[in-house]
Design a protein around this nucleic acid. Structure first.
Length: 687
DNA sequence: CTTAGGG
DNA sequence: CCCTAAG
């Protein structure tokens, strides 16, 4: 008699480990490999440029209120926060149960009142009790009544000063992560309101250095001019309040904000380069126009962009533009390196030394540069009790959501510009949100302190990231509810505590190492992959855990303006360099490896579908082929010297198990292979 | 769709 | 990871 290979394997598995064979999953339930072959055609993608446009948008947003608002990043932030707040409220209605949304709302709320509070903080530093805040605020407002009008240009310039002054105090260990996000927001807002050239600098991953000046002992400097100090204070994080009290501060204090950031408006240098809005815009546009890059025409049809169901969700079909991950573009592959760089521009660093300052200033903008420098050199006083609890970081640039635009190849450049602009505006219409990522993981808990989030002054460089995220639901109605939800889930990563640390991080910051938990509860618990989103909502979808995967947005794109669209309906120009995109590489974490090993030990090799179902059913990415491949590499890895191994080191014991399992199962396979395995059987058959 | 292997 | 041949 001849056993079917699989059957025998299963039997052995059961016999050996007492594991009941998993019922065969119906075909319908089997993991399907996502469609990969995508077509595409004339598409122009422009991600980095978004930054430029962002500026324009923000300008617009602030237009109305700028008149009577004082300048200063806080104000700007407040302004945009207003808009965001509205949306958040809206969102809240739709996703009341979504933690992420709540977070986003908190962030927004924070932004709106953080500024005033900072000011207050400045004026009544002693008033640790939040109860005193209101009073202090009014005082503050009274003290600087004359600083109420600033121009946008000033705002922009001020950013330079602010950025440069971003004191160590700005990011204290005691600050809430939400505060951090808010602060970043403020900075971003300010940055975007700068005149174009300066903005470029800010955006240039190579330049802008927002690092704070050297720390000065708290009382060694009295030189700090009032306004300087103000500026500084205005962007620094409020002292960590106990509880979420500060969230209660109402936003009616916008008035205060108005006067808060303007103290420096009198700065002569600022006057020097006060561009007008028009100028700003044109610059932005120009910038955009110059930078847009044509990319692979990956025509996106129903989620072919991504490989995972979750990923696919936000594939705004039938839309002209999409925000998605860069990686989804296969055609972009060749340029990926370059592109990734853009997407990595999020990097910021923690300066370890207080003295080290690398302020590369824009060679292009002498004026502003000067202004900035002036302020840079200005010492300021910082008053942080614990001098070593500061997190110093510089944000080279923000990660901007990818923007995909589909436009006929025959469209004019002008229409392209317009299209891009519209897309960006559409995205920004929802306001921006700043995401904070640590070790590639999104920190969603705004109430966490930086310290708790693992962001400490002695942190490693490049562990922190910020991203600008569009406030997705501008027109919720345009999308199916489910889609929206999924989108949200996808956009965001997961709850820190429930996550598996990125492969490269040794989760040394007190983050719960979910890996072990998962890995150690093998038989029953599957490795849930990175799809910890389920933590937030049942049936959650997978979400890439890497920073690169977080910001996406659905843009209710208004049809490309008539001119562009009408001009050329020639969509047939595809077929050129299509092909699907290569999936991004997602190194297996130790936890995953362990889960895999466990499953294989149980099921044996050659049953990858079952292994997948058993241990990676929730990891939408990770197909059985992936698992098989991983096993292959594991076997290989285990057989080479440790020195030759690369990537995240896999515990030797795991590798040993790999080899053991491998040999065991291959043996089993060998036994069954020979049509005449046991002599006895052969005899029986022949007899 | 799954497996198994080469690329 | 991708791609393919096979079943």
């Amino acid at each position: 008699m001849v056993f079917q290979k699989r059957t025998s394997s299963e039997m052995e598995a059961c016999a050996g480990s007492h594991v009941a064979e998993m019922p065969r999953v119906p075909k319908s339930a089997r993991g399907k490999r996502s469609v990969r072959k995508k077509e595409s055609h004339g598409q122009v993608m422009c991600a980095f440029d978004l930054l430029a446009t962002v500026a324009g948008k923000l300008l617009d947003e602030g237009e109305g209120s700028l008149g009577n608002m004082s300048a200063g990043s806080p104000v700007v932030a407040a302004a945009s926060a207003k808009v965001k707040q509205e949306q958040c409220d809206e969102e809240a209605k739709h996703f009341k149960n979504d933690a992420m949304d709540q977070d986003s709302c908190n962030e927004s709320a924070l932004i709106s009142h953080i500024a005033p509070q900072r000011l207050v903080d400045h004026h009544s530093r002693k008033a640790e009790d939040l109860n005193e805040v209101p009073k202090a605020k009014s005082e503050a407002a009274d003290k600087e009544p004359s600083m109420i009008s600033c121009t946008k240009a000033e705002l922009g310039c001020n950013f330079g000063a602010i950025a440069d002054r971003w004191s160590p105090e700005s990011v204290e260990s005691g600050a809430f992560t939400g505060d951090a996000a808010a602060n970043v927001m403020a900075l971003a807002a300010a940055a975007f309101n700068k005149n174009a050239p300066d903005m470029y600098n800010l955006l240039d991953p190579m330049d802008v250095d927002v690092k704070p000046p050297p720390l000065v002992s708290s009382d060694s400097t009295g030189e700090m001019p009032l306004y300087g100090d103000k500026i500084h204070r205005s962007i620094s994080f409020p002292r960590a309040p106990k509880g979420g009290a500060e969230y209660a501060v109402d936003r009616e204090n916008d008035d205060d904000d108005k006067s808060s950031g303007c103290t420096h408006s009198s700065t002569a240098t600022n006057r020097g380069f006060r561009p007008n809005c028009t100028a700003d815009h044109s610059r932005v546009k120009k910038f955009l126009a110059c930078k847009y890059r044509k990319v692979a025409p990956a025509r996106m049809h129903k989620g072919d962009l991504s490989y995972s169901d979750a990923d696919r969700k936000p594939s705004f079909r039938n839309k002209k533009m999409y925000y998605t991950r860069q990686r989804t573009q296969r055609s972009t592959f060749k340029r990926r390196k370059m592109f990734d760089r853009h997407s990595t521009l999020v990097s910021e660093e923690f300066a370890k030394s207080n003295t080290r300052r690398t302020t590369k200033v824009p060679t292009a903008r002498p004026a502003s540069l000067e202004a900035n420098k002036g302020s840079n050199s200005m010492p300021f006083r910082r008053s942080c009790e614990s001098n070593d609890c500061h997190v110093k970081l510089k944000i080279k640039s923000f990660k901007v959501p990818e923007l995909l635009i589909e436009i006929p190849e025959t469209a004019s450049v002008g229409s392209l510009k317009k299209t891009v602009l519209e897309a960006v505006n559409a995205m920004l219409g929802g306001g921006l949100r700043v995401g904070v990522l640590h070790h590639g993981k999104k920190i969603r808990d705004d109430s966490k302190t930086l310290l708790q989030a693992g962001i400490s002054h002695d942190d490693m460089l490049d562990n922190l990231g910020f991203s600008l995220e569009p406030n997705c639901t501008q027109h919720p109605s345009q999308f199916a509810a489910s889609e929206d939800v999924e989108f949200l889930e996808t956009v965001d990563t997961t709850e820190p505590l429930a996550r598996i640390p990125p492969s490269d991080s040794s989760s040394k910051h007190g983050e719960v190492d979910a890996c072990q938990e998962l890995a150690l509860t093998p038989l029953t618990a599957n490795y849930h992959g990175n799809d910890h989103d389920s933590v937030h909502s049942p049936g959650g979808v997978s979400s890439p855990e890497k920073a690169s995967a977080n910001s996406r947005a659905i843009v209710p794109v208004t049809p490309v303006d008539s001119s562009a669209g009408a001009i050329v309906p020639v969509n047939k120009a595809k077929r050129s360099s299509e092909q699907g995109q290569r999936r991004i590489r997602r190194p297996f974490s130790v936890a995953e490896v362990e889960a895999l090993v466990l499953a294989v030990e149980k099921l044996g090799t050659g049953r990858w579908r079952d292994v997948k179902l058993r241990a990676f059913d929730n990891a939408k990415h990770r197909t059985y082929v992936d698992l098989k491949d991983k096993w292959k590499t594991l076997v290989h890895t285990a057989s080479i010297s440790p020195q030759q191994r690369r990537g995240e080191p896999v515990p030797q014991d795991l590798l040993d198990r790999v080899l053991a399992a491998q040999s065991y199962w291959s043996q089993q396979q060998a036994k069954l292979q020979p049509k005449t395995p046991p002599l006895a059987e052969a005899r029986l058959l022949t007899t």
